[in-house]
Write a protein that binds this DNA or RNA. Structure first.
Lengths: 125, 125
DNA sequence: AATCGATATGAACAAAACTGCATAACGATA
DNA sequence: TATCGTTATGCAGTTTTGTTCATATCGATT
């Protein structure tokens, strides 16, 4: 019956920044991309790592910087390596902030979720 | 410059339940629909209130109950009023739980967000 | 049994999101 | 200056998501 179903429930959450008009600026998806770029030093490599298309990623990144109004990425083309993409100090700072936020949220979310589950599984009001 | 942009940032978040395979069950959108149904006592009225199509809403609701395996809604057809939709006790309980969760999250989120903004606006590491 | 307004459902259509592919541009290095 | 792998970008096609509309079904009330 129902109690069985509730025990199988998983909680998910997503956070993102918008401007005052609710236009999306930076969210979990782009955050992951930025992290992958930091780790790999390359847009192409980051896409492979995340299993998403280069095309989409490129569009997303272009959108972020347009919204924010300043660069998060330092791109270079040419050379034996073909080119590279790295984070600017601002970009680094931003993903650090997101990292911290997520860490805190993960803990809090899960503890509250445990409470919520208890409540749902209980019989009383 | 950048600091200006950051001060305009708004934090948004969304929570939702999935099964163990990450298949969506209930999220903010459906939660809002359920609340509107509770308030209006009618699916049609709830859709008008939320400015969403009846068709879509109907599909969404069908999906929830299929996933959960038990009814959240008590529907009736016919009569002078044409029919009505109300929440079952389980449905009521579920949206109460969501309400509580959101209330707690709102507070916590915003306070952490204030910290994050401070950090982003600061000059140091 | 005739009426009425809401639920129920299919199907065609439209819009948005995403993918896949082709191809250009770049420039450090050999 | 020829090469190489990466960034950059357009475009056609597909998939997903949501809308619109038509139409059936229901049944308490009159």
């Amino acid at each position: 019956m129902k109690t069985k179903k509730y025990t199988e429930l998983k909680l998910n959450y997503k956070i993102w920044f918008t401007d005052q008009n609710d236009k999306g600026i930076l969210g979990d998806g782009k955050w992951k991309i930025l992290k992958a770029i930091e780790q790999t030093g390359s847009l192409t490599a980051a896409c492979e790592k995340l299993q998403i298309t280069y095309r989409r990623t490129w569009n997303d990144l272009k959108a972020i910087e347009k919204q924010l109004g300043f660069a998060l990425l330092e791109k270079s083309r040419g050379g034996a390596e073909g080119g590279s993409t790295t984070l600017t100090p601002e970009g680094l700072k931003l993903i650090r902030a997101f990292d911290d936020f997520h860490e805190k949220m993960d803990v809090i979310m899960q503890s509250h979720f445990a409470e919520l589950k208890q409540y749902l599984l209980s019989n009383g009001e």
